[in-house]
């Protein structure tokens, strides 16, 4: 079953003004349930517009958006219920924090869902734990936290709604390696504990190599590739042509193969590289 299915979607910004720009050009794509899909593409390729369609923040000019088989624009008045099914974390979400305490801020989403207080409290603690937010921080003001902590609080605010589909737009942009890891580990834990579908928009091939199962690549308002990450990274040459890059380790793997060394298969994560080198050294 597909979690999200888009059919023949087009979207134009500022139609009818000199600033008109086609952001999505007849895009049809579906995202499988229960896996992490990385959505990649360089700036302006339409990634961010695409994710805004998933929960009905933008209405496509034509085509249909279906969540678990339901057309979300069937009843435009009930669009709000899909906001809780598809949790969308925007770029730099830390700028949306507004409450007096971290706990209050995380409960904003669940409160809008109309849940009772004990359920809200349970979900807030659960989300905070997934996002590695120390329980001592819960009573602090969100504006006193560090950048990475703020980011995690904002993500927890979406996770607390427990959406079946979690969509994140550049969740780790501008963070140091440790901050990135904390965020991606949190996302992975959310996926496995809630059996959720996750879509991550990212620039970083390395992060996607590590965390995603499938990768969709966008170029010029269209879906350019959509396959398992192994298959996508094999097409390194095409990725380079559209301004993307494969993880540096993937080049190393290719170099080794070109040297005629018996590398079993191409690898693209540091861990796989260590394993492969291990086997090589042991063989010699």
């Amino acid at each position: 079953m597909n979690a999200i299915e888009l059919k023949n979607i087009s979207y134009t910004y500022s139609r009818g003004t000199p600033f008109e720009r086609l952001a999505l050009d007849d895009v049809s794509v579906s995202f499988k349930a229960g896996i992490i899909t990385g959505l990649m593409g360089h700036t302006g390729s339409g990634k961010s517009t695409l994710v805004r369609l998933f929960n009905g923040l933008e209405k496509p000019e034509n085509g249909t958006v279906s969540i678990f088989g339901e057309d979300i624009w069937q009843k435009p008045k009930e669009i709000r219920k899909y906001r809780f099914k598809v949790g969308l974390v925007f770029q730099y979400p830390e700028y949306q924090l507004f409450e007096e305490t971290v706990k209050e801020d995380i409960s904003y989403g669940p409160k809008n869902m109309g849940l009772d207080n004990s359920e809200i409290d349970r979900r807030v603690r659960d989300a905070a734990e997934l996002c590695r937010i120390d329980s001592a921080l819960l009573e602090k003001s969100p504006f006193d936290l560090s950048g990475g902590e703020k980011r995690r609080v904002a993500i927890a605010g979406i996770m607390a709604m427990q959406p079946e589909i979690l969509v994140l737009d550049e969740p780790a942009a501008g963070l140091d390696p440790r901050g990135r890891e904390e965020i991606f580990d949190g996302i992975r834990d959310y996926k496995s504990s809630k059996n959720a579908t996750v879509i991550i928009v990212s620039h970083s091939m390395e992060d996607m190599a590590k965390y995603s199962d499938e990768i969709a690549v966008m170029n010029n308002a269209k879906i350019y590739m959509h396959d398992t990450k192994e298959a996508v990274f094999k097409r390194a040459h095409e990725l380079c042509e559209i301004g993307l890059d494969v993880p540096p380790i993937a080049y190393f793997s290719k170099e080794l193969a070109d040297l005629g060394l018996p590398v079993s298969e191409s690898f693209y994560s540091v861990e796989a590289c260590v394993d492969a080198l291990d086997t090589l050294f042991n063989a010699n």
Binding site: R52, N55, L57, R80, R83, F84, G87, L88, V89, F90, P93, Y95, Q96, L97, F98, Y108, G109, N112, M113, G157, I158, M161
Partner: peptide, 28 residues
């Protein structure tokens, strides 16, 4: 958009509840 994604509702309800719905936008 970010607050809408968290279920904020700016278009329905009484004037007072709509004004209150703007707090999560105005503070940030």
């Amino acid at each position: 958009s970010a607050q809408k994604a968290r279920g904020a509702d700016f278009t329905t309800g009484s004037i007072i509840s709509r004004a209150k719905a703007l707090i999560p936008v105005l503070i940030p």
